[in-house]
């Protein structure tokens, strides 16, 4: 009797995922495998970055405070890239919020609990989704318009050079699991609906939602990847890896925020403040 429920929840989450995230793994793979008529512009050094920036700035202008745009040109390259990362993160947090609302039971939770789940879940979800846009050589950016190489990101000055390499290392292990967007939709829902985030008031209600998602995820993986029976436990292990990745990322961002002349977007400040 659980079979129809399982299928409908998996389908519902997959549809919400395709609706709310402008980039998904299927789309990203088309760009990353060079199957588009206009291949992404490759950013691999300062010259190609400057060339790409004009386009990136135009794309971001709609989202960006005018003060940020006018001071952008005067900033050093690392600070500019940090700012771009922040705007991309804010956009993804907005998408994740809409996706979370589509998880059955989420919107009925206490509003403060919803905030807590997002505060602790969005970066874990973001890094899981970011893997779809990565291969061993680089990262797809600007809606598939650009590809920034891993080597270039590593060549930035410290501490900015330490920002992306751990995400690439995670992404290579994560991408080896060969999940598709329907799997990722349930995985992201499981990340968000997590009963052990600090400060939750109605833990049992969240655990009920979490259990139903995890149950559906397990069955969905068995039917979608019949040859890989260990996929479910492997994926649960990735939840722990993501938590560690976010802890380290939060420390790095707090460090950059203290030592560099780089301001943090108010939404991201809310998320990082008193996080761990």
């Amino acid at each position: 009797s659980q079979q129809p429920d399982t299928k409908s929840l998996a389908k519902q989450m997959h549809e919400a995922y395709l609706k709310h995230f402008h980039m998904n793994k299927a789309k990203a793979r088309v760009f990353l495998t060079g199957k588009t008529s206009t291949p992404p512009f490759v950013i691999h050094d300062m010259d190609t970055l400057q060339h790409a920036e004009q386009k990136l700035i135009t794309q971001l202008l709609g989202n960006m405070a005018s003060g940020d745009v006018s001071t952008l040109r005067e900033r050093e390259v690392e600070a500019r890239l940090f700012l771009f990362c922040q705007y991309a993160s804010v956009a993804t947090v907005t998408e994740l919020t809409e996706f979370a609302k589509a998880v059955p039971g989420f919107a009925a939770l206490d509003l403060n609990d919803q905030v807590t789940l997002l505060k602790y879940g969005v970066y874990e979800a973001l890094f899981a989704l970011l893997a779809s846009c990565m291969n061993k050589d680089g990262l797809l950016v600007a809606h598939g318009g650009g590809f920034i190489t891993r080597e270039f990101l590593k060549s930035l000055r410290k501490p900015f050079s330490d920002m992306m390499e751990p995400k690439f290392q995670f992404a290579m292990r994560f991408n080896a699991l060969e999940l598709d967007d329907s799997d990722l939709a349930l995985f992201v829902a499981a990340i968000i609906c997590c009963g052990d985030r600090p400060g939750l008031s109605d833990v049992s209600q969240i655990e009920r939602i979490q259990e139903s998602i995890i149950h559906v995820l397990r069955l969905h993986l068995l039917s979608n990847h019949p040859d890989n029976t260990l996929l479910f436990p492997k994926l649960l292990q990735k939840l722990a890896d993501l938590r560690q990745l976010v802890t380290e990322h939060a420390e790095l961002v707090q460090d950059i925020n203290k030592t560099e002349d780089a301001s943090l977007h108010p939404l991201l400040q809310e998320i990082y403040r008193d996080m761990y």
């Binding site: 989202n63 907005t94 609302k101 509003l111 905030v115 997002l118 939404l267 008193d274």
Partner: peptide, 20 residues
Amino acid sequence: KEKHKILHRLLQNSSSPVDL
């Protein structure tokens, strides 16, 4: 609540863009 006012707003208003 004040500490997370943008997250509150995102959760409550489905189509409101983040005030940047």
